[in-house]
Amino acid sequence: MTVAIVRFGGSNCDRDAHRALSHLGIDADLVWYEEGLPEDTSGVLLPGGFSYGDYLRAGAMAARTPIMEEVREAVSEGVPMLGVCNGAQIGCESGLTPGTFTVNESARFQCEPVTLRVENAETPWTRAYEEGEVIELPIAHGEGRFEATEEELAALEREGRILFRYCDSGGEPTERANPNGSAGNVAGVVGESARVAVLMPHPERATLPELGRTDGAGVLRGFAES
């Protein structure tokens, strides 16, 4: 049971993710993308960062590397995958998860804590929470605005594929609480299987008690649950 944390040139949250998973007792290894997925891979974490310098679009280049074909195959066999921040952009660019993440409404890089409402607590990544629970995680991105057509968004909602929405402290997904202009205040979604998920906020930065809040631990525990 080893989670492969896939590093691309420009990944920079890989060690944070490793430390956070280790803290939770989840075995994980850092894997350079050119090496391919190890045979004992039981989970895949695509970490945050700036793979390929965000050339063309954030995540566009990494999504088209050979290791992502291996990730696609592993996922089709039921291996869980979590994409965080740049990993979320890679997940959407590769088509493993719906929609896309693009330039923040502010046109600025934003690094701040946000509050999120748990929309579906029945996934491996949200089972630690109650539906409607409000948690706090940090964001750090310039291209985090979720975009999907109205029809796609309605379908995601109907199918329970929205994991988290940006909300105020009372749990209301208001425009003011939406840090980047995301459609439907969406901060994270699952793919066709709930075992495949992406989110822009950073659970690995809110897992170690010495860093303060530990609201993100429940997301990472999805690797142990699934």
């Binding site: 566009a60 088209r64 929609g99 975009e147 057509t149």
Partner: peptide, 9 residues
């Protein structure tokens, strides 16, 4: 189709 454009946007 495969790289330069993202069909979602």
């Amino acid at each position: 189709d495969r790289l330069l454009a993202n069909p979602t946007i």
